[in-house]
Amino acid sequence: MRIEPTSSTLSLRPWHADDLDALLAAYRDPVLRHWTRVPVTNAAEGRRWLDRVRTDWDDGSRYTFAVIDADDGPPVANVVLKRADLDRPGAEVGYWTAAWARGRGIAPRAVTMLSEWAFDRFPELTHLDLLHQVDNVASCRVAQKSGYLFQEVLPARPPFPLDGHRHTLTAP
Rank of each mutant, 00 (worst) to 15 (best):
L24R: 01
R83M: 07
A17W: 00
A26H: 00
G73W: 14
V134K: 04
T41W: 01
S146Q: 08
T41V: 08
P172H: 10
P14M: 00
R48H: 11
D29E: 05
L86R: 06
Y27W: 01
G147Q: 07
A84F: 07
V153D: 07
D58R: 11
G103T: 05
R121T: 15
L131D: 06
R33K: 01
W49I: 03
P39W: 03
Y63D: 06
L154I: 15
E124R: 13
R47K: 09
R62Q: 15
L32S: 04
T41P: 00
V53T: 15
D120E: 12
A110W: 09
P14L: 02
T97A: 09
A156Y: 10
P74R: 02
W57M: 02
R157S: 14
A66F: 13
F65M: 12
R54Y: 14
S7K: 02
P39A: 00
D59E: 12
P30S: 01
P89M: 03
D56W: 15
D18R: 03
K82F: 15
L23E: 00
V38I: 13
L162Q: 02
L81C: 08
R102I: 11
D85G: 08
A43E: 14
D69N: 12
D87R: 11
P14D: 01
G73F: 14
L24K: 00
A22Q: 04
T168Q: 11
S8C: 08
L50W: 07
G90D: 12
V111L: 03
R83K: 06
S115V: 06
A17T: 06
R166P: 08
A171I: 14
T36S: 00
T9F: 05
E152M: 13
Q144S: 03
F150Q: 09
L131P: 04
A156H: 02
C140W: 15
A91Q: 04
R62V: 12
T64N: 09
F65R: 03
L125W: 11
P74T: 11
L20W: 03
W57E: 05
V76A: 09
V53K: 02
V111F: 08
T55I: 14
V80L: 06
A99Y: 12
D58W: 08
D19N: 03
R104M: 08
Y95V: 13
P5G: 02
G164L: 03
L20T: 04
R2H: 07
L125H: 05
L86N: 01
A99S: 14
A101L: 10
D135M: 00
D72A: 15
S139C: 10
R13E: 05
D18S: 04
W15V: 05
G46W: 09
F160M: 06
A44N: 08
A43S: 14
A70G: 13
R83H: 13
R54C: 14
G147E: 07
R121N: 06
T55R: 11
